[in-house]
Design a protein around this nucleic acid. Structure first.
Length: 206
DNA sequence: TTGGTGATGTTT
DNA sequence: AACATCACCAAA
């Protein structure tokens, strides 16, 4: 039985790379407007920091990125490629612009609801094996930006299976054009809900 | 199964 | 002008 324990905010007030690695296996919860609760196990993450040219915080605060520099444990949801949304969790101390991108999730509860929102998809593994797909399946967009994911009740995290034995893989990050050598992507090796883009990224053993 | 490509609109 | 993506199609 998975743990439904809430996180302490201090867990996320640390370096994004450590958080990204250690949060694998934790659960993502989403309460829809009609009360339905969706749950997914996080199986793939990437870390982004201020000193990293591919991070949205790299060029300093802008209206979009301001809360990346705020307290940890809040959602950072941004729009990309004209169509899709991506979900991040803000990390480290205030004024440190760091975040974890959630790239892969395994459905745990509410898979029927997820299928409704992903009606084009034939195979279940394609429901949530990518950052844009997660936001579609979990019905996330700018309305869920800046929510408290520690103590909130719309979008939040619990420890889930975080402390189970994991075979963790490491690689460079996906879909970026700079800082491609940083090995800041982490995933549960062999899990089918890890995004397929991994094949195009150089692999590094952990 | 793998690789290439067009769609799309916000941000800088 | 770039972009932390996805779905589709073609080739093998």
């Amino acid at each position: 039985m998975a743990s439904q324990r809430r996180f302490k905010r201090a867990f996320f007030r640390r370096h994004a790379v450590d958080v990204a690695k250690e949060m694998l296996g934790c659960h993502l919860h989403r309460r829809l407007d009609d009360g339905t609760e969706l749950i997914g196990k996080i199986v793939e993450t990437e870390a982004y920091t201020m000193a990293d040219p591919s991070c949205h915080a790299y060029k300093g605060k802008t209206p979009r990125t301001e809360h990346l520099f705020g307290d940890a444990g809040y959602s950072y949801i941004y729009f990309t490629y004209g169509t899709y949304w991506c979900l991040n969790v803000v990390a480290n101390e205030e004024e440190q612009g760091e975040a974890i991108l959630i790239r892969g999730v395994e459905p745990i509860q509410g898979i029927e609801e997820m299928r409704k929102r992903r009606s084009k998809v034939k195979k279940d593994r394609d429901l949530t094996n990518g950052p844009g797909k997660i936001c579609l399946a979990f019905e996330l967009d700018k309305q869920q930006n800046k929510l408290d994911m520690i103590d909130g009740d719309v979008l939040w995290l619990t420890t889930g299976e975080m402390n189970a034995k994991h075979d963790i893989g490491t690689s460079s990050r996906i879909g970026i054009s700079v800082a491609q050598d940083y090995p800041w992507r982490f995933y549960l090796r062999g899990n089918p809900f890890v995004s397929p883009g991994k094949l195009s990224a150089p692999h590094v053993d952990y």
